[in-house]
Structures are given as C-alpha cells and as structure tokens.
C-alpha cells in the first residue's frame, strides 16, 4: 500500500475501494474509520453514526457480502473491498424489494436505523432467501431501533422473502 508521510510525521495511505460498483481512491490515516470515508470523503451520508463503538448498527454496510459496522472497520481494512451502502441498494431509481416492503409494512419511523436494517436484511436474504423468523431476528439483533419495536421490520423482511405476513 502506498504511503506518504506529512510534515508532522503522520503517515497517510492511498487505498482504493469499490463502493456501490464504483472504484474510489482515497488518502486515509491509519486510524481513519470506514464510516468516515463513506460519509466525509464520498458524501454517502445514508450510512449513519449512532454510537461509533460498534453497538447500534446504524453504520452497517455490506463488505464483500457480509454486513459490518463501518464505524469499527479501519479504512485500511476496506482497501480492495467491495462495499454496498444504502445508496447502492436501489438500482437506477427502482427500489429493492426490501425497500418496498419496509414502506408497505410501515417499518420506518424516524428512519435513522433504516439504512443499517435494510443492509443487514439484504445480507441475510442474499445468503438465506427463506429465513425463519428467528433467523430474521438474529440477523438484525445488532441493529438497534428505538422507534418500532422491530415488529414491522420483521414483517417487512418476511414480505421481502416472499413469506406470508399477518395483518397486524
């Protein structure tokens, strides 16, 4: 990895990462977190920060197929990785079925947890298209939501998996 040292002796690294299909090259410090690269450098503010300690899941993105908390991933670790953020979920302005089902099931309130929830759910459905309710709950157990009690979020994920959903 290419590194340069600034006047104060702080090392900076040139990394390259693919976000939502596009490759970006950015200069980061050893302690720069992925979430800050996404939000500050690439202006992808759909990735939220709720705690910056890996506890809330608001900053979830998919990295090489796995959901990760981007606030505890060093930008250096993301070098050469494929990342999907919430901005990359809809394709050409067409919503993903999870985004549709979140709307249908009133699974969004304040919306702050929503990007992370959708990405955790997306990673789940990609590896397990027909999850049980328990598997759904496990998959989003690292994503805290203070508004919905997860009730409608679980329903939305079921709907996106093509499963029947009780009316209330």
């Amino acid at each position: 990895m290419q590194a340069i040292v600034d006047k104060e002796g702080i090392k900076r690294y040139l990394i390259s990462l693919t976000v939502n299909g596009d490759t970006y090259t950015v200069v980061v410090k050893a302690n720069t977190m992925l979430v800050n690269v996404l939000r500050e450098e690439l202006n992808l503010t759909g990735t939220k920060k709720g705690c910056e300690t890996g506890d809330c899941g608001s900053c979830t993105v998919i990295m090489d197929g796995k959901p990760v908390n981007s606030c505890i991933i060093l930008a250096l670790e993301a070098d050469g990785k494929e990342i999907t953020t919430i901005e990359g979920v809809a394709q050409n302005g067409v919503l993903d079925k999870l985004q549709e089902s979140f709307l249908n099931q009133t699974a969004v309130q304040c919306g702050y947890c929503t990007p992370g929830m959708i990405l955790s759910a997306k990673a789940l459905l990609t590896r397990n298209p027909n999850p049980t309710e328990h598997e759904i709950r496990e998959a989003i157990a690292g994503n805290l939501c203070r508004c919905t009690g997860y009730v409608n979020i679980v329903k939305a994920i079921k709907e996106a998996a093509g499963q029947p959903v009780d009316e209330h």
Binding site: G46, I86, L95, N104
Partner: peptide, 23 residues
Amino acid sequence: KSVPRIDGREKVTGAAKYTGDLK
C-alpha cells in the same frame, strides 16, 4: 387509511438528511 409515509422513500434510500449529515 394506512397511506405510506410521505418521507418513506427518502428514508429507505438513504437520501434523508439529518442534521449531522449536513455540510
């Protein structure tokens, strides 16, 4: 009627801006 939220689309696409997202 349970019409969809007026801000729903913005929130599910990550387009919704919160104060911390503004520059």
